[in-house]
Design a binder for these strands. Structure first.
Lengths: 184, 184
DNA sequence: ATGTTATTGTCAGTGACTGACATTATCTGT
DNA sequence: ACAGATAATGTCAGTCACTGACAATAACAT
């Protein structure tokens, strides 16, 4: 049922756009009532954000299983490497979805919130590895920024694999932050 | 009028919380109609997010005026230094507002969106300095993460100034990303 | 005083979302 | 196959965010 609703929503959003599609229409297309729609999804946006637990699970377990002697930055890199498969497999599904989100501020807000909760999960896993509170959040945000950068470059330039772009992104973060402001 | 509405909203949100306060109540407390409220603010959340242009302006002009030979990381540091005053002066107003936002997912989403548009502005200013497209976004995100970290530490430990925390945050980013994943 | 313009009030309407309760599957043990 | 429990769905009424259209009023220039 959830799948049917998600499918109907994707198609309608694709045709009329997110704001011009009512929840009742989605429900009707799926053959149910509007009320049923809101029993499956907390709100209209949520119908597009449902596969995110998989990524979170992979990242968290990868962080837990990473060698204890690894620092947060290397641990994050390993975690993202472990999630590479997920991105590659979902690419064809993720791209149209991304275009939808781009066109609607409301959806962008929700996407940001989802990313934020992913970051919070990463930070929490880093804290369990002994990283201090705020530093864990900082590292998680840096890592997520690097991941996003890698994915963006990967979308632009498919000739290299996501893994290559990821390693490059991590290097870029190091190089960008290499100078010492406040000293010079 | 905007001020009156914002003031009324702040008080009501403080008493009953954001979700339990209706736009009509805010308007009534300010002595106007609900319709007038929505003429001044695009939506109910926006009443709490209105002073953000000041920060954006300072950062952008600081980035434009920074010496051209400075790399993105140092330029960002200078920009944040230029905005320090703004944070110090608004601290007493920002703290209760922050507590309100923390308590409401809807407000958190909006706050994230505002931060995002700030980051986008930074990235755009960096591009004008010659930083390539995606790298500009990456650097802007890193900088914003550092700034957020500095502010968080500053809230926790007021004994040092925000400037000190900022320099420390930028150092932390460098140190965290210093290792070379994929090599070891 | 008169015309202009910006701000507000009024009203009717749409659409997201919720609570309460009835109805209908779906499943379980016998 | 049957009765009873459990879960998913339908129905309905209602609240609230938000919008468009138009009237009323205030502020201001001429």
């Amino acid at each position: 049922m959830r799948r049917r609703l998600q499918q109907a929503a994707l198609e309608l959003f694709g045709e009329r756009g997110y704001e011009l599609t009512t929840a009742a229409e989605i429900a009707a297309k799926a053959g149910v009532t509007e009320r049923t729609f809101f029993r499956h999804f907390a709100d209209k946006r949520e119908v597009l954000f449902d596969g995110e637990t998989a990524l979170s699970d992979i990242l968290n377990s990868a962080l837990r299983e990473a060698p204890a002697e690894l620092g947060p930055w290397d641990a994050l890199f390993r975690a993202f490497e472990a999630a590479e498969r997920l991105f590659v497999e979902n690419r064809s599904f993720a791209e149209p979805r991304h275009r939808l989100i781009e066109r609607s501020p409301a959806l962008q807000e929700r996407a940001l919130a989802k990313t934020r909760s992913l970051i919070a999960g990463l930070a929490s896993a880093l804290r369990e590895r002994g990283v201090p509170d705020h530093a864990a959040m900082l590292a998680a945000q840096m890592g997520m920024a690097a991941l996003g950068h890698a994915v963006a470059c990967w979308f632009d330039d498919g000739s290299s694999g996501l893994g290559d772009h990821l390693a490059q992104a991590f290097r870029k973060v190091r190089d960008l932050s290499a100078s010492s402001p406040g000293i010079g």
